[in-house]
Computed example of a mutant assay.
Amino acid sequence: MFILIAGVPGSGKTTVAKELSKMIGCKSLSVTDVVVKNKLYVDVEKDECGKPLYVVDMDKLEELIKGLEGCYIIEGVVVDFVPPEATKKVLYLQARPKTLIARMEQKGYCKEKICSNLEAELVGSYLQMLRGLYGDKVVCVQSDGPLDRTLEEALKAVKCERLPCARWSQEDFEEFSSYCL
């Protein structure tokens, strides 16, 4: 059984995956860590900030995932390679632009990368793609509050409660515009 945790950089995927795995007794797996550790990539390019960007060998990654047994929480910016039939729930972490900007700046992301991720979040492109693949298994979890509240929502989502996805306010779009445009 797989529980997937997705979201833009800075949404809290790694932290939530590690803590939630302890709470429910699953193993936590970071897509990026697995790809790098097992050399499941065909090339290394540079992202907008000049940092390494791994071009994943999806066949090898899917093969590795199919070989896993037991309960796993798989987190990453991209998790859509996991078969829907093996997936119990997809938690899509959302945070307000102001929170995401602060978190991505703290991680050393350049403005161009921050803005492209903010735009993707506000437009909802990855969330919609996940919904197309996984249907009702996709649940939004607000992650810009205290960790204990985020974990409480994540636990509710795993237990199949429906949680509303954020409706971005005018203030959120203005925050994006003032930072990125």
Rank of each mutant, 00 (worst) to 15 (best):
L93K: 09
S125R: 12
E105L: 15
C49L: 09
L20M: 07
K27V: 10
A157H: 03
C165T: 06
T15S: 13
E45F: 04
R162K: 15
V158H: 10
R131I: 06
R167I: 13
K46A: 15
P97K: 05
D172V: 10
K18G: 03
R167Q: 13
E69S: 14
L68G: 04
K22R: 15
G50M: 07
K66F: 05
F173K: 14
E153D: 15
C165L: 08
C26R: 01
D148N: 14
L122A: 00
D172Q: 07
E175H: 03
C71L: 08
V139E: 03
K66S: 14
S116C: 07
I73E: 02
V139P: 05
I5M: 09
T14S: 15
E69I: 04
V77T: 13
C49Q: 04
E75F: 05
L133Q: 03
Q170K: 15
L61M: 09
V44P: 02
S116I: 01
L20G: 07
L29Q: 09
L151Q: 06
C140I: 05
K113N: 11
D59K: 10
K13W: 03
D47P: 11
K39S: 13
E62T: 09
K51Y: 12
T99E: 12
I3N: 09
K156S: 13
K46M: 12
E105I: 14
G7T: 05
T87W: 03
V141Y: 02
